[in-house]
């Protein structure tokens, strides 16, 4: 897909009208991820219940449209998953970024699969994966 089309069809909507950009009242975990090449940061907040299910999540912080959209899409799909499912989901996303995911696996990513083209742009891969890395750290650190 041509870059402007990616922006038009996927990125712009989530960037301009993010559903999950806010602060949680009682987050279980908060972690800031920083992209050292540009200084952008994303603040990921997660609320887990006693069974390890992600009952709510959100993001905040300054970043480019790609990182904002990627955060919004990830959070949208991760709410309701338990920790293991969420980590599996993140791993599959990373496999897509590295080009090792099967077509089936990519399909399982649902809307996040649409980020595949941006994630493959060498200059923008870090923007696309920042929120995912940060979420992964939260969920792994919890174990």
């Amino acid at each position: 897909m041509d870059l402007k089309q990616i922006y038009r069809e996927i990125v712009n909507e989530h960037n301009l009208h993010p559903e999950h950009k806010r602060d949680l009242a009682n987050p279980t975990y908060v972690l800031q991820g920083v992209n050292p090449t540009c200084g952008d940061d994303v603040n990921i907040q997660v609320e887990l219940d006693e069974n390890g299910v992600i009952t709510d999540a959100s993001f905040s912080g300054a970043g480019c449209a790609v990182s904002q959209a990627s955060s919004d899409i990830m959070i949208d799909q991760i709410i309701g998953k338990n920790k293991e499912e969420a980590l599996q989901f993140i791993e599959t996303f990373m496999e897509m970024v590295h080009g090792t995911a099967s077509e089936e696996e990519i399909e399982s990513l649902d809307e996040a699969a649409a980020l595949s083209d941006v994630a493959h742009m060498p200059a923008r891969a870090k923007c696309a994966t920042l929120a995912w890395h940060t979420m992964e750290k939260i969920l792994k650190g919890e174990e």
Binding site: D2, L3, K4, Y7, C38, D40, G63, C64, A65, V66, M121, A123, R124, C127
Partner: peptide, 13 residues
């Protein structure tokens, strides 16, 4: 409203 990274990316295209 536009992040400079996005500006640079669309200009790159």
């Amino acid at each position: 409203g536009c992040h400079p990274h996005d500006v640079s990316s669309v200009l790159d295209s």
